[in-house]
Design a protein around this nucleic acid. Sequence first.
DNA 1: AATGAATGAGGCTTCATTCAT
DNA 2: TATGAATGAAGCCTCATTCAT
Lengths: 197, 197, 197, 197
Amino acid sequence: MSTARRPTEERRQQIAEAALRIISGKGVHRLTAQELGREVGIADGTIFRHFKDKAEIVRAAIAHLEGVLFEQFPPQAEDPLERLRLFFVGRLTLVQRMPSVFLAAFSDRLEEAAGEDAGAVRSIIERSQAFVRQCLTEAQERGQIDRRLSPDALTLMVVGTLQAAAFGHRRGALKSQLDPTTVWQTIEIMLTLGAKK
Amino acid sequence: MSTARRPTEERRQQIAEAALRIISGKGVHRLTAQELGREVGIADGTIFRHFKDKAEIVRAAIAHLEGVLFEQFPPQAEDPLERLRLFFVGRLTLVQRMPSVFLAAFSDRLEEAAGEDAGAVRSIIERSQAFVRQCLTEAQERGQIDRRLSPDALTLMVVGTLQAAAFGHRRGALKSQLDPTTVWQTIEIMLTLGAKK
Amino acid sequence: MSTARRPTEERRQQIAEAALRIISGKGVHRLTAQELGREVGIADGTIFRHFKDKAEIVRAAIAHLEGVLFEQFPPQAEDPLERLRLFFVGRLTLVQRMPSVFLAAFSDRLEEAAGEDAGAVRSIIERSQAFVRQCLTEAQERGQIDRRLSPDALTLMVVGTLQAAAFGHRRGALKSQLDPTTVWQTIEIMLTLGAKK
Amino acid sequence: MSTARRPTEERRQQIAEAALRIISGKGVHRLTAQELGREVGIADGTIFRHFKDKAEIVRAAIAHLEGVLFEQFPPQAEDPLERLRLFFVGRLTLVQRMPSVFLAAFSDRLEEAAGEDAGAVRSIIERSQAFVRQCLTEAQERGQIDRRLSPDALTLMVVGTLQAAAFGHRRGALKSQLDPTTVWQTIEIMLTLGAKK
DNA sequence: AATGAATGAGGCTTCATTCAT
DNA sequence: TATGAATGAAGCCTCATTCAT
């Protein structure tokens, strides 16, 4: 809420953060120059001293989102299932702590607001998805996962579970049941059962 | 495109359909009175002879959506896993045929547009979720599913798989891999493996 | 200044007229939606119910200008010099009566405001110029004008005289001297002197 | 592009030049503090260390323009028609080399931007006009020009020819035909024909 | 003298909604 | 019930100008 002058770089940071906060907290339709200005403590027009236009702000917000989601990525572990576990539990924990930020990645509002750069949002999702798929394929090659299971279907399941958890949070439901470790255990049991033989 | 007078009920239907078509085809930001009027064949102002305000229109669109999604619901079968299979394959097929309609159910844009009655969208999701959970619990009670698996986690997985498939469609990815039957087989194998012994 | 509802066609007319009035009376920089609205008696936003955007308004104003300038055009007469005289005296009279409207045709402001359609302004000028040139060439072929005189230079002179008269009016100078007939006589004498031999 | 400090006088010169360059090259609407700063190599706000406001900048630009137009003025020659010839050919050459600078003198945009002191532009034109008129009157008194020709009309013609040539350049037309000498010959023939007898 | 962030006023445009016809 | 002009509130964005640094 500083009214003082700030160097552009700092303001850009502030604004990008504020944008993400607004998007995931109040909805994209509230992402207006006025609202941003209020949040940051400057006049609405001043926003455009730091960003060319609104699309650029959204882009910055997405970049910021990417930073949050992939802070410690990829997880390091020799065993692919262990790597997947680290990722999954981490993400599910994030979902619980900051559900709205996570949901932003799936927001059609955000994607819409990104305009031309909608691809930026998609790439965030794809990056996660590719990682999951990689872990699963590797584990299957090592014989840790039943070979009858389709890697694509499994990827969908793992990623989808996270998504459903996030949407569950939005709806206010399921809060208690979502102990990350429990959920992972269920998944792991299923993945490895067939391979034990 | 008839300009003739119509009883309100008929018009409301037309408008609700048009609204859903616009939302899932062009995005909520294109859902304007003018666009609706054009789609239905009446003047923009006339829309508000039939609906109090825009939120009411969106609510009607959501109701219409619910009708589409639950047309033949719940599926009839004695075996809970068979019931789940019917539901799952049906939904996944729908996702592939009309991804945008399906995505609308997860659209934050739509939820936002509904205003106060955003709950309407949520109830659609919850209805599906409750059904899935019911099938899984029943199957577990019958010993068809390993008892170590958490029903909540499983519900999340099944529902999430559908969601991830839908979002995959939005991103234009995964089109080929999504053969509904294959995906279901992978799920079924996993669900039932542990119980076979 | 009517506040009452008007059919679009009528409003478009009103707005186009108002636009031309503003442009030539107060300058393009005063051609704002607000000013137009005030002039016509409606709210600023309402303007865009009748025109897609400002460029379209400018285009309409130009079309209106063209209508004024070429109301009775081309003049009918067998003798090309007589035709030219009719045109010249008519234009010079117009310059005196409505100097600002005439100047609009040479306004870089207007041309700038026309944006993409700047050509529309130019074509107005070219149309006059082509007519003048045609008369002069014809007269020269008939031996009414000395053959040593370059038709291009003559065209420049005739058209330029009108322009200079208009700009003189803008500067508030020369008002009295500009008796259209006197000016024409001077021109005619010069054009025909050399041919008399 | 030096960011070093400069005495105000030097900066004022630089800025005035830049202003004229922008106005005649890109249009007044591009004459912003930012653009000026970029052109001169200083920050936008700094502009107002050297000029009170934008109108003052425009005024300086006009003064600069006057300097360019009247660099070698008035031409020296005993014979008034020769004096006029020198002026005319000089100006027409200038028109061809730097049409935009010349046009600036007739720009309503520039006049408008000057604000209160719009008269500054007008005086530039009047100065030329008075000179032309003086030459013509003198020549007529010497019997070089037919006495039936109105000096006012002739002044209009000569000045107008230059204007029309300039506007022709703006429209991109007439480029080839405008050999200054040819045009002057046509004028001279007409002016002197009647007097030869 | 220089910087560049901040302001505030405006300008264009869209849109839900109203209301005279 | 229908029309479509009108309104008013936003929203985005630009720019002259100010002022703390």
